[in-house]
Design a protein around this nucleic acid. Structure first.
Length: 829
RNA sequence: GCCCCUUUAGCUCAUUGGCAGAGCGCUCCCUUGGUAAGGGCGAGGUACCGGGUCCGAUUCCCGGAAGGGGCUCCA
């Protein structure tokens, strides 16, 4: 169906028919594949534009539409600018959503997953995403997770993957452990269930070893990543510097080391606290009169959820262990308490308490009647005010430190500790190692075989991938241990080292392992000999522009940065940061709040597309505001977007000059408007202000309309130039409309490859500009002057102008401020 | 509690140390062989408030208010 193709293309009277335009161009694009990247004979410079890959949970929703519309503007823009753009897509296909859905339906997660992938893929095609469909990957395919296992073993070999017994975060609902990053405010990131602690032996990746580099390399991202994300990562890593100080313990051979950021307040330590749930606490309590009280307290602590523990307004609790520590600088004997406000896994799990200068210590001291000694004079007594002072000030009650300021005191005390061998400067991080074991089915099997003789034995590389056994016959319901344990044929194997009996590790990997390196795999997604080809990766990476939600500000982005640095150290990549620029798009909300079925404000993407068409929805998303802001769907007007597109589209039918006509003979004002619009749109797009670029295109459409109806007329070559520029600009946002315009303007498809219009700088300069003449800041006269006018010429012209003379009314002139060519301000005496 | 961001037309947002703008929405007019449409005209502003710098501040600085976001027993 091509209702207007056979009619005269210039009568401008056909209707803008969204449905038929969409039908017409999809097959043409399938044929042309304008976004296939990296052909061997392609000499264009390379760019890598990456959208965060989706979970295949259901069909695409409004959030996807926004994210992919934005990513598409960037990818399509750089194609128009003559780049060989790689813009791939894939599916983050392992994980709980698929597994839970499968359990509900009693089927293998693989079916649900692949159905959704097919659905999303077809929706993306219709949504005109400029993806390179030859590079698609699914993380649940053995061809992909093979390399998760390979990376794991590489890290294992380097001591970066290790197994340890520890109290881990446990989600009682999902019945699996969680990484620290997946506990949000004490709740499971996925299901909002309060997280509890559980003692388990689990696999970890040693991300803490890279803490410093993760911090330092953020300098590379300054200005190119959202400030907010960098700040969040910085806070998450939480580097602090201070000192480790050794305290002797009465009745114990070994001293206990504490970590403090304020070694200068050592003389103010009036008691000592160990984490209640640490081994040290149990050891110290053992055999003392406090043993029973401690045991009771420990039980209470274990029952306390993270949520309660994180409530800083909660009263301090603890128990005196009937033991004493000796302050290394003054020999003072201070009582040892156990409390849950000290964390077992931060620092050394023990602290010196300085209640005068630490609020938590002060709260504890007040709760248990312990002494408070001021050692930094800040003018107030914390024991009286209840507010610990952390400010700088002269030290008091501190022996040799008396009179010193904070910085000098720290230096002095460090020297003393060093000399006596009882302390040294130290650094600590809030960041913990990344726990990657999961007690669930739908993930990458951990390629380790446990052998009674040999311990943890890696699966030989030539036996990878360790394939997930079929779900059939397995009970996938969460029960606290991995469902893989029931696949006895799979679990029981032989030890690759000694040939004796062995069992496979039954846990699967956190799916964030998949997303930590998937962007590398796109460069050679079908390579079955290696994770990626380092030579090809060198050509494409790092990613030039990454687009995705801010929900991944810490998790995915931190892990990816960590992986990249490990790969750099392995010599597999030649860069240390994977994503050069990052755009965090906002969310699509409805009436101010997140869309959800239960809230009843869910807008279905498929409905919107059916009513307004793909282009109008894409345009609405892009034009709604700055990309990082939320889009409130209640505030946008897809019908208005559609009207605009129809108005733009009609231009293409009004042009009567022939393709290739000499535009330099065209109407100068319209040409200026065209070149200014293209120039400003380019800047806007390159600074990620896509809404502004759209506004410029809208203005150009309006100007062109006027030129046709009441200006230079439809035959003027400038009208063709303007209409073609509109088509190319719109090709980034409204591909169907743009393609149809391009065709009606007499060109062959595809407009996506038409090339961005060249801007003639001469056309950006006005012949005459309006100069404002002010008297005391008020406009009294306007002059049309050439833009190159000199200061003297302009002053003379302005002083002689009638409006000024009248306004001055004979008064003397005190000062004349001349800012050619735009302004003259005359200040009367 | 600490830190960050935002505040310009009814809505969403541009812009700029010097005339305050766009789109959407709205009024009215034209078109009635483009019609669940098209074209035109127009209204609409104390640029959150208060101080400062400056010839001149919506813009820069300080303070306040409102809204939004992040962090919060990490010694």
């Amino acid at each position: 169906m091509a209702p207007h193709m056979s009619e005269s293309p210039d009568d401008g009277r056909e209707a803008y028919d969204v449905a038929s335009i969409q039908e017409r161009w999809l097959p043409v694009w399938d044929e042309l594949a304008p976004f296939r990247s990296g052909r061997p004979d392609d000499t264009r410079p390379k760019k890598y534009v990456l959208d965060m890959f989706p979970y295949p949970s259901g069909d695409l929703h409004m959030g996807h539409a926004e994210a992919y519309a934005l990513g598409d503007v960037i990818a399509r823009y750089w194609v128009q600018r003559g780049y060989n753009v790689m813009h791939p897509i894939g599916w983050d296909a392992f994980g709980l959503p698929a597994e839970n859905a499968a359990i509900k339906r009693g089927e293998d997660p693989i079916h649900w997953t692949y159905e959704n992938i097919a659905q999303q893929k077809s929706s993306m095609r219709r949504f005109a995403c400029s993806f390179d469909w030859d590079r698609v990957l699914n993380t649940c395919d053995p061809e992909f997770y093979h390399w998760n296992q390979w990376f794991f073993l590489q890290m294992f070999e380097r001591g970066l993957a290790y197994r340890k017994d520890s109290a881990v975060n446990w989600c009682p609902n999902d019945q699996t452990v969680l990484a620290n990053e997946q506990v949000v405010g004490g709740l499971c990131e996925r299901c909002d269930t309060p997280v509890t602690k559980k003692k388990l032996t689990q696999w970890y990746l040693r991300i803490t070893e890279y803490a410093d580099r993760l911090l330092e390399d953020m300098a590379q991202l300054e200005g190119a990543w959202p400030e907010k994300v960098l700040l969040m990562q910085k806070n998450w890593i939480g580097r602090s510097s201070g000192a480790e100080v050794q305290f002797a313990i009465e009745g114990r051979d070994e001293p206990v080391t504490v970590y403090t950021t304020r070694p200068d307040t050592l003389y103010g330590a009036t008691f000592f606290v160990v984490a209640a749930d640490s081994e040290l606490a149990a050891e110290l309590a053992d055999g003392t009169p406090a043993q029973e009280a401690f045991a009771t307290y420990l039980e209470t602590v274990k029952r306390t959820s993270d949520i309660e523990r994180l409530d800083s307004s909660r009263a301090k609790s603890g128990v005196f262990l009937e033991r004493y520590a000796i302050n290394p600088v003054n020999g003072e004997r201070i009582p040892i308490w156990a409390s849950d406000y000290v964390l077992a896994d931060y620092g050394t799990g023990a602290i010196m308490a300085v209640p005068a200068h630490d609020q938590r210590d002060l709260d504890f001291a007040r709760a248990f009647g312990l002494p408070v000694r001021v050692v930094v004079d800040a003018g107030e007594d914390p024991a009286v005010t209840g507010v610990a002072t952390a400010d700088d000030g002269p030290h008091v009650n501190s022996g040799p430190l008396d009179g010193l300021g904070k910085a000098e005191a720290i230096a002095a005390i460090n020297a003393v500790l060093d000399e006596r061998g009882t302390g040294r400067p130290a650094v600590n991080y809030r960041l913990r190692d990344w726990l990657i074991s999961r007690q669930r089915y739908w993930g990458t099997p951990i390629p380790i075989i446990h052998c009674a003789q040999c311990g943890e034995v890696p699966v030989p590389l030539d036996e990878l991938p360790v394939r997930l056994p079929p779900a059939e016959g397995l009970d996938l319901k969460p029960k606290g241990t991995s469902p893989l344990g029931a696949a006895t044929d799979w679990v029981n194997t032989t030890c690759p080292r000694c040939g004796g009996p062995g069992t496979r590790d039954t846990d699967t990997m956190d799916t964030f392992v998949d997303s930590s390196w998937y962007y590398l795999r796109y460069t050679s997604p079908h390579d079955d000999t290696q994770a990626f080809d380092p030579a090809v990766v060198r050509e494409w990476l790092p990613v030039d522009q990454y687009v995705g939600g801010v929900t991944h500000a810490i998790l995915h982005l931190l892990y990816s940065r960590f992986f990249t640095k490990v790969l750099f150290d392995m010599g597999l990549v030649d860069f240390t940061e994977p994503f050069t620029r990052l755009l965090n798009q906002g969310m699509v909300v409805m009436d101010g709040s997140a869309m959800s079925k239960s809230r009843g404000n869910l807008v279905r993407l498929s409905d919107e597309l059916a009513v307004h068409g793909v282009d109008a929805i894409r345009l609405s998303m892009v034009f709604a505001g700055p990309p990082e802001d939320d889009v409130d769907w209640a505030d946008v007007s897809p019908a208005g977007s559609k009207r605009f597109l129809a108005r733009a589209w009609r231009l293409s039918g009004d042009v009567t000059s022939a393709p290739g006509v000499d535009v330099t003979a065209g109407d100068i004002d319209l040409r200026r408007a065209t070149h200014r619009a293209v120039s400003e749109a380019s800047t806007a797009i390159e600074t990620l202000r896509f809404n502004v670029a759209v506004a410029r295109a809208m203005e150009l459409v309006n100007v062109t309309r006027k030129a046709i109806d009441s200006g230079c007329g439809p035959a003027d070559p400038a009208v063709r130039e303007a209409a073609e520029a509109v088509a190319v600009m719109l090709s980034l946002v409204a591909p169907y409309t743009a393609e149809d315009m391009w065709s009606r303007l007499g060109h062959a498809p595809s407009v996506a490859l038409a090339g961005w219009p060249d801007v003639d700088p001469a056309l950006l300069v006005e012949d005459l500009v309006t100069c404002v003449v002010q008297v005391a800041g008020k406009v009294r006269e306007r002059l049309e002057v050439p833009p190159g006018i000199t200061e003297d010429e302009l002053r003379e012209l302005a002083l002689a102008s009638p409006g000024l003379v009248k306004a001055l009314d004979g008064r003397a002139v005190r000062t004349v401020i001349v800012r050619p060519p735009k302004l003259v301000n005359v200040v009367p005496a």
